[in-house]
Design a protein around this nucleic acid. Structure first.
Length: 473
RNA sequence: GGUCCCUUCGUCUAUCGGUUAGGACAUCAGAUUUUCAAUCUGGGGAGAGGGGUUCGACUCCCCUAGGGACUGCCA
């Protein structure tokens, strides 16, 4: 039986530049590349685009690693550093120069600016006068850049996996620079050489690169290389529909982490932003990987919606392991520099499963857990004190005895116990609840009473009630 | 200015020529009620505008409008 032709394995990549934080749009590009690689059984590579020596920093490189790691998007193999490949980039430029596809341009910046303006007036992009001039003695040793000899006519066609056929008139693409005056290469050239050398089959990136795809296509052809598949993702927009800015709150991966979102929730939400699988809203990584296809990416830009993210995060917290959540919440509390009891881990583990349904973020989960971490005797708030009338105190004293012997110490069991107690007292739960809640929590947020008691445990619960009753008014 | 891309409820989206245009978040009303949530039930809410093509258009084509990207010796 003849074996079917083996399709070339998919290789994707994320190529951030280390010039600050890892932008959320970049994170989504990473996610889509990762999903597609996983879906096809291919590879997902990381390349650090550090050719801008002015702005690239060591710390930012670490931020990229940390962000991707936190997000759970593990890249395959060693990261590639673009600057380290400078010699390869230069060799490619030399090839282009030798083939007449590129040329040395001796225009000064001012001359180039003027030429651009004139070209614009004439209805086309910059064409350097040096594209058809041979440098003479005068130019020997003079500073110059190397530009690509962009075809004057025809169209450059990009077959984009999400946008379809996109046509760029060559006359509107300038003779873009390949090599700076200082001899270092520029983005479009470096990217093309690196993507080719790394064997990238699918370039999946933000829409801001769509027009670069035209220039890069020209370079691939000039270098005699096969053009990879392109897929340009719609942009993530701010609430007002514009570019994401500081005003919109979170723009970096680190900020999402600090706001208390789980990485799997961020993956789920980001995946849904610009891609969809029917009516599926909440899903696991395994499902996303099974379902993901570049062809299903939507075209329009999407605005960040924190309400939806909260909902997604809540869903993932519900199904998250409680020990893991306890550790994360503890981290939040430590960051807040809150004094924690010695048995904080045990207490968190007891309370988190009972309150996490009502929490949207780890920060809220921390807030909801706080009541269980207080040390006796609790300081009661004004509201609770006002509930503690003589009548209520006597009632709580009787309840204390009931709880001492309650045999079903579970949320449901205690709920029933309280209900039965209220009936025996001939009052509604409203006569007991607020006071009991305050006595147990000291005024901090707490779940329903059955759960609140359960999380505290019998000893702590009885102790807190007792403390309040013996407190002098 | 030029080139390119985009446009369905407030938001994210489904629809791939024939649907009462579906779902989710948000919102509103009700239920529950011991706080905040969560939960349950129900409601309102959309094809930017104008031309075509077609028996029939959200879906295909054109124009207009609006939004965005690029137009760097940044990436």
């Amino acid at each position: 039986m003849p074996s079917p032709p083996t399709p070339s394995p998919v290789v994707t990549r994320i190529a951030p530049s280390p010039t600050g934080s890892m932008h959320i749009g970049n994170a989504r590009s990473a996610l889509f590349n990762w999903l597609y690689a996983k879906h096809t059984g291919g590879k997902f590579l990381l390349r650090v685009e550090d050719t801008d020596r002015e702005r690239s920093t060591e710390a930012s490189v670490q931020v990229i690693f940390d962000s991707l790691t936190w997000l759970g998007l593990q890249w395959d193999g060693e990261p590639v550093f673009q600057f380290a490949r400078a010699a390869l980039h230069n060799a490619a430029v030399q090839r282009l120069l030798d083939a007449g596809q590129a040329f040395r341009c001796y225009m000064t910046v001012a001359e180039a600016d003027a030429a651009k303006e004139q070209a614009r007036a004439e209805g086309h992009a910059l064409r350097s006068p040096w594209r058809d001039r041979t440098p003479g003695q005068m130019e020997e040793g003079k500073p110059h850049v190397v530009r690509f000899r962009t075809p004057g006519e025809g169209d450059t066609v990009v077959e984009d996996l999400v946008r379809g056929t996109v046509r760029f008139p060559n006359k509107d693409m300038e003779d873009f620079i390949l090599l700076r005056t200082d001899g270092t290469t520029i983005y479009n050239l470096a990217v093309t050489v690196d993507d080719h050398d790394m064997g990238i089959t699918h370039v999946i990136r933000g829409e801001e690169h769509l027009s670069n795809a035209g220039r890069q296509t020209l370079l691939y052809r000039a270098l005699g290389w096969e053009v990879p598949a392109f897929a340009h993702l719609p942009l993530i927009l701010s609430k007002s529909g514009g570019k994401l800015s500081k005003r919109d709150g979170a723009q970096s991966v680190g900020e999402f982490r600090d706001m208390g979102y789980l990485p799997e929730a961020v993956r789920n939400y980001l995946a849904k932003l610009g891609w969809g699988h029917g009516d599926d809203e909440l899903f696991t990584d395994a499902e996303a990987i099974a379902w993901f296809d570049v062809a299903d990416v939507v075209k329009g830009g999407a605005k960040l919606d924190f309400d939806k993210l909260n909902h997604v995060n809540n869903w993932h917290m519900r199904r998250a392991d409680d020990t893991r959540l306890s550790g994360l919440v503890r981290g939040v509390l430590e960051e807040r520099q809150i004094a924690l009891p010695a048995d904080v881990d045990a207490r968190l583990l007891a309370v988190i499963p009972l309150v996490k349904e009502g929490a949207k973020t780890l920060l809220e989960l921390a807030d909801l857990s706080l009541y269980a971490l207080k040390s006796r005797p609790l300081v009661l708030d004004e509201k609770t004190l006002s509930h503690l009338t003589d009548e209520t105190r006597e009632r709580l004293a009787r309840l204390l005895e009931v709880l001492r012997t309650a045999n079903d110490w579970t949320p449901e069991g205690l709920q029933q116990t309280l209900k039965t107690f209220a009936e025996s007292e001939g009052v509604g739960l409203g006569k007991i609840g607020p006071a009991l809640r305050g006595v147990l929590s000291g005024g901090a947020p707490a779940p329903d009473l059955g759960s609140a008691l359960t999380a505290l445990g019998r000893e702590e619960s009885l102790g807190r009630i007792h403390d309040a009753l013996s407190q002098v008014r």
